[in-house]
Structures are given as C-alpha cells and as structure tokens.
Amino acid sequence: MQDLQRLAASGRVPAPEVMAARARRWGWWYYVEYWLRTAKAWFQSILIYMVGEPLLYLVALGVGLGTLVDNGVGTVDGVPYLVFVAPALLISTVVMSTGGELTYPVMAGFKWDRLYYGPHATPVTPAQIATGHLIGVLIRFVVQSLIFWAIMVAFDAVPRGVLVSALVIPIGVLSAAAFGALLQAYASTLQDEGYQFAFVQRFVIMPMFLFAGTFFPLSAMPVYLHWVGWISPVWHGTQLARQVTYGAVEPAWLTVVHVLFLLALTVVGVLWARRSYTRRMGS
C-alpha cells in the first residue's frame, strides 16, 4: 500500500515561494527543456530534412543552374554562382522553416492541443512560454544553420575561409529570429483554424525567398521592387552572410543597418508575442 501521506507531503519540495522564485528566473528555460524533449521524438526526420535540403538546393541551384550562369555571364558579384547563391540559400531555408515551427504549433498550443495551458497553471508565465517556445525553435535553427554551413564548406563555397564563414550560423539564427518572432506573435493573435498561414506561406515567405536578392542581386530588379528586399529579413541576413562567406563588399553603414534591422524586428516580435500570449491566456 502506497504511503499517501508521503506522496502528498514528503518534505522534499521547497517552499512555494522558492519554487516561484526559481520559475520567475528560469521559467522560459523550463519551457525550452520541454520543447527539446518533444523535439527528440522527431529529431531523426528533422535531421534528414536538415541535411537533405541544403544538398538538394546546392546541387540544383548552385551546381546545376550555376554552370549555366557561369558559362553565360561569368560571375555574379565577382564570384561563381554557387558561392553567390549558397549563403542566400542558407538564410532563406532557415527563415522559411519558421513557417512550419511558429505557425501551426502556436495554434496547437492555444487551441488544438491546448499545450500552453499546462505550464500556464504553474508558476511559469505566458510571456515565459512565448519566449521559451521561440528559443527552443532557435536552438533547432542553430543545428540547421550549422549543418548547412558544413555542407557549404564541403562544396567549397566559402572562399573567405572556413572560420570566418562560420559566422553564417549566428546570422542565420538571427534572421530566423527576426522573422520567426513576428510570425509567432501574429499566429498567437489568430482565433480560427489558421487558414491565414497558407496565405503567409505564399505571399510573404515565398516572395522573400524569390525577390530578396537570393538568386540575383537586388540591383538586378527594377528599382520599384527594391522595397521587397529592404523590408525582408531574408535580404538583410543574406547580405551579411555573403560578407562572411565570400567577402561581398558593402558600405559599413549598410552592414550596421542589416544588423540593427534584424535585431529590431526580433525585439519587436518578442515583445509583441509576450504581450499577446499574456493577454490571450489571461482572458
């Protein structure tokens, strides 16, 4: 027979105020721990995706299309097409992955499986849940960027040097955070079944992929379309990535703008998400 007295009060649990203090400090991390634990379940399939995607893109666009481009115009931005397009593909694919991670799973958290409401009944706050979810996803993007970078190295697409080019990893994660945090915040405001996500996929994420200087420099597009690049975290991230992989030349102020733009979007997205989670879960 189980000793229920001990089950209900073993004396091994700290005082409530101690538990609350820990959660106030580390609640976001407890949610990251949870996220990582669930990620273990599908890690294998995600790993195949994280390795397969760069290979497919680099072979098809870098090598295949690249041969045509190099034979036709010679180089793009002074480098072979593979070298030009590879950093852009890293940024694009990582940012595009937010479309899977920070849309439907957010809806599941609030509505379908109500997973957010488990921790909501504990000392962990909605704002911490929001940030914890984002950071969990960003940890995945660290791995994804790392794998992509390693494959770029294997394809000999980092003329500036292996070490410097590793900076594409934080740049990739920052780009994903800039777009992902906003997407997460937006997703948290939706009450219905998330039909809007298909729209976001087609009319926000795809245009960023196609028109934000990924496959050709922004300057190759008519001036009246440049704004697509300017407002897109993909373009800003891509330009930074190109600097560290092959030494693309840009004025210093523009580099600062890239970084500040990505940081600003991240901060706005994180604050908006925290606020939106707090409101939605508290009403």
Partner: peptide, 13 residues
C-alpha cells in the same frame, strides 16, 4: 517530469 520542471524542481527529486 516536464511538469515538475515548471516548478523549478530538480531532476533528482
């Protein structure tokens, strides 16, 4: 275990 962590409870417990 996940739920216990939300209270800051250690894995050993």
């Amino acid at each position: 275990i996940v739920y216990g962590r939300y209270f800051g409870l250690p894995h050993s417990y």
